[in-house]
């Protein structure tokens, strides 16, 4: 029970400080889940994110369910998911009741201006850490550059990118390990 409450509370913190899409929660996941609690590795978080991107539903929720399930089975998945949505329920209900045009307040806009800069810096540091662990050769660098450029400058869906990465990765990596075996 204690572990379920812990799961719920950790994901409450993650949900409560996610400004933007699912990617904005990665720095906090890396800190709380990977580094402090060691509930998952950076590689696993990347896999969850890839799966969350290709399956229906909100990515942040998909990632929370995944980590919760790994930790404590089905109940764990539910506890983590309820945790990640809980702050939204409270905050949005308060805003909807009392502040009709919340986003027009200058103080909100100015705070958000600062927060966005922090989000960019945090994501940059997350990318650096993930890069060190998962990009080991020129093929990885090429995959990274292609996916960044195609997503930024074309309308190609991230799902297609992930499928292409999976198929080419399988072919290249399996050939490589065959060569190693042959030696």
């Amino acid at each position: 029970m204690k572990e379920l409450i812990d799961l719920f509370l950790v994901f409450c913190r993650i949900g409560g400080f996610t400004f933007g899409g699912g990617y904005a929660m990665l720095p906090i996941i890396q800190k709380e889940i990977v580094e402090e609690r060691k509930w998952a590795t950076n590689e696993e978080v990347m896999d969850y994110y890839a799966i969350g991107q290709c399956t229906p539903g909100v990515i942040a929720v998909n990632t929370a369910t995944f980590i919760g399930y790994k930790r404590k089975g089905i109940i764990g998945g539910i506890a983590a998911t309820l945790g990640v949505v809980f702050p939204s329920l409270i905050i949005i209900t308060i805003i909807a009741t009392f502040f009709e045009h919340f986003q027009d307040y200058p103080i909100v806009q100015n705070a958000l201006g600062g927060i966005r800069v922090a989000v960019v810096a945090l994501i940059t540091s997350t990318i650096v850490k993930m890069w060190k662990q998962s990009i080991k050769n020129w093929i990885g660098i090429a995959f990274f550059i292609f996916s960044f450029l195609l997503i930024t400058f074309t309308d190609l869906s991230p799902v297609i990118m992930i499928i292409i990465g999976g198929i080419t990765g399988t072919i290249i990596n399996l050939n490589k390990s065959k060569k190693v075996d042959a030696k």
Partner: peptide
Amino acid sequence: ASLNGIRPVVIGLIAAAGFEV
């Protein structure tokens, strides 16, 4: 093997999202 191919793509996706912000 396929996950090893997907991870660099995921980092690219995160970088693209970061670039938008």
